[in-house]
């Protein structure tokens, strides 16, 4: 009896967004009296970091510090429309809508500043710390807090903007089948190294290497976090998760959380992940979506590594000890 080692790889190309009846997200942005720019969205952040990423997009476009941006995703009844945060679309669709809204708001912000400073709006720039200043001058400037007060109480203006990003529905060209169902695709490759115990059938993932081409990583630390978390989910799907672990009798199946198998912190593979950046022309500052794909390539990579280790070709998830042992038995019978 032996512990057999193997290595396998798998690659994935993944579309950003979807192509049902058109794929829109909208955003509104406005300045409060204190110069805080509120982004109103219906998009939901359930931990993937959308609020952080769209705040970065708005800060970059407005030329203001990140601390001056507040993202409000409070209510889908009253907010501008969003299809939802799924299909790896949030960063791309919502990010683009927020940039569009911030551009419009920036134009008005500069107009208000121009009136306050008695200069031409075209000669103004933002310095990234909260000041709008005359290009080449250190004296002629106004802070956005004073600007917001002036807009509200002197000039009677709203510093606001609207953002509408719509990816129209794409129909295939009948003659060629050519179409544009997504705006861009992200690409990744995973290499898994496993150890298969041919006595117990247990598979352990020892090492995992991931490379992602994701346009520009708008927040590299969060992108890395998403890759690692997704790879863990991939390992979980590949080796653990099922609601029917005691086939064929459902009566012996799990009934609650405590009987649903998932890998814990002790089942982790040593993980190395690399991000490659090739900005997408239509992405918000070049970004694409990688939300869903991070759980994909680990699964076939592990299946291929199992084949490399012991010759068993597993064809359904999860790759349980039972399936490995049955596969090994079949190989022995075939070779006998």
């Amino acid at each position: 009896m032996a512990r057999l080692r193997g290595r396998g790889f798998a690659a994935v190309n993944y579309p950003t967004g979807m192509n049902l009846g058109g794929d829109p997200s909208q955003a509104l942005i406005h300045s409060t009296t204190t110069g805080t720019f509120v982004i109103t969205l219906s998009s939901v952040d359930l931990g993937q970091g959308l609020k952080t990423v769209v705040a970065q997009c708005a800060a970059e476009t407005l030329g203001l510090p990140l601390e001056m941006i507040l993202v409000d995703t409070a209510d889908t009844d009253t907010g501008p429309h969003c299809m939802g945060t799924f299909a790896s679309r949030g960063t791309h669709r919502v990010g683009n809508a927020v940039i569009m809204a911030a551009r419009e708001a920036r134009e008005i912000m500069l107009e208000v500043a121009a009136e306050e400073l008695e200069v031409d709006a075209a000669d103004l720039e933002t310095d990234g710390t909260g000041f709008i200043k005359l290009k080449g001058s250190e004296e002629k400037k106004i802070h956005v807090v004073d600007l917001a007060l002036a807009a509200h109480f002197k000039q009677g203006k709203t510093i606001s903007g609207r953002g509408i990003f719509l990816k129209p529905k794409s129909e295939p060209v009948p003659e060629t089948g050519e179409m544009d169902p997504d705006s861009c695709q992200a690409h990744a490759c995973t290499v898994a190294e496993v150890e298969v115990d041919d006595e117990t059938g247990i598979v352990e993932v020892l090492n995992m290497y991931n490379v992602y081409e994701m346009g520009r990583a708008l927040n590299p630390a969060m992108a890395h976090q998403q890759i690692v978390g997704g790879a863990w989910m991939g390992i979980s799907h590949a080796l653990f998760e099922t609601t029917e672990p005691y086939y064929p009798d459902r009566a012996h199946g799990p009934t609650d959380y405590s009987e649903y198998l998932m890998p814990g912190p002790a089942d982790l593979a040593a993980m190395e992940s690399v991000i490659l950046e090739r900005p997408a022309a239509n992405g918000p500052y070049g970004g694409k979506g990688i939300g869903e794909m991070t759980a994909n390539s680990p699964i076939p990579a592990i299946a291929n590594a199992i084949y490399d280790a012991c010759g068993v070709r597993v064809e359904s998830m999860p790759f349980t000890p039972e399936k490995i042992l049955r596969g090994l038995d079949a190989l022995r019978t075939a070779n006998a």
């Binding site: 976090q225 690692v228 978390g229 997704g230 790879a231 863990w232 993980m271």
Partner: peptide, 13 residues
């Protein structure tokens, strides 16, 4: 932390 389930991070961080 083996009694603490996390569904997002993969535990590494």
């Amino acid at each position: 932390i083996s009694g603490n389930v996390c569904r997002c991070t993969g535990y590494e961080a």
